[in-house]
């Protein structure tokens, strides 16, 4: 222990520095979370607040968890969420990977400006970025008109459309998710690709590889940690998304975030909302573990590299 750390320890500052944020997170994060877990096992009652626990009701009521599997509403919502988030993640990767790679190839001064332009939409309101697409996808918008003209041009006359029905579909949800989450994919990929040694590319070229082979055999395998980090940074928030499906999504095929919110606020069924929430968290645990393991490995590699 260094002299500074010893001094901290002696004066009791150490306990304060650990204790204050610790206590805060226990009170305002852990306790609410434990309430959700306990609530998922409570029974719904017509009281206010609308739940019973113990007393006349069973102490542990697993009915909610049983309903998850018997009521197809929940299974369908989970499936819709996983598919929408999965498709959005793949599209983000397909668009974000070449963009990140391109950013490593432009000159230093351009790179700063372009990176700024990737981050800039982040700083404008998330809600307004979703809203911008509501304007573009509406039936009378210039964008929809343009796409409709294109469609009518390339398809036989029998398929001609007045406008393309984009709003309130899963297509709209995926499109807007790709739009809002694309920077989450580009930035970690860029950070990963930027560190790669260009000498390896050149060596492969000198040995007769064609550009695509260099990409496939040299660049791509080295960028897998970036792909995983970016993919999970898109997938995890996308799967639990509430705002985007509420504004542009198909109300008949809700995503899981919508179900949680509706069970809670509209049906006033706190136990069921909590059950669905716990189920969503359980589904998230797998991807998160992968992410933190890769993160730890990347950090480990970095500190190893820093050692002389």
């Amino acid at each position: 222990m260094t002299a500074l750390a010893q001094w901290f320890h002696r004066r009791g500052w150490r306990d304060l520095i650990i204790g204050i944020p610790y206590a805060w997170l226990i009170l305002f994060f852990l306790l609410p979370f434990l309430i959700v877990v306990a609530m998922s096992l409570a029974t719904r009652t017509p009281t206010a607040p609308p739940f019973g626990y113990g007393g006349d009701n069973p102490l542990i009521n697993p009915a909610g968890y049983a309903r998850l599997f018997t009521d197809s509403l929940y299974l369908r919502a989970f499936l819709t969420s996983l598919i929408n988030a999965g498709v959005a993640t793949v599209l983000c990767l397909l668009l974000g990977y070449p963009m990140a790679l391109a950013l490593t190839r432009v000159s230093k001064s351009w790179r700063t400006i372009l990176l700024m332009l990737v981050i800039l939409p982040f700083w404008t309101s998330f809600l307004l970025r979703v809203y911008a697409w509501m304007g573009l996808m509406g039936r009378n918008s210039w964008f929809n008109g343009l796409l409709t003209d294109l469609w009518n041009l390339i398809t036989p006359q029998a398929w001609a459309l007045q406008s393309i029905p984009m709003m309130n579909t899963n297509f709209a949800v995926v499109l807007v998710m790709v739009y809002t989450y694309l920077p989450f994919m580009i930035l970690p990929l860029y950070a990963n690709l930027e560190r790669l040694d260009p000498a390896l590319d050149e060596a492969a070229m000198d040995l007769g590889s064609r550009p695509f082979q260099v990409f496939r055999d040299v660049t791509l395998p080295q960028s897998i940690p970036g792909i995983i980090a970016g993919g999970l940074l898109v997938f995890i928030p996308a799967a639990g998304e509430l705002v985007i499906p509420s504004l542009v999504g198909d109300a008949a095929a809700p995503m899981i975030g919508r179900i949680i919110s509706d069970e809670f606020a509209q049906a006033r069924d706190w136990p069921m909302a909590s059950t669905v929430a716990v189920a969503l968290l359980v589904l998230m645990v797998g991807p998160t573990m992968i992410y933190s393991r890769f993160q730890a490995r990347a950090e480990g590699a970095e500190t190893d590299g820093a050692k002389p």
Partner: peptide, 9 residues
């Protein structure tokens, strides 16, 4: 943590 869950908790 998905924001919905932080919200309801």
């Amino acid at each position: 943590m998905p924001e919905v869950i932080t919200g309801i908790s």
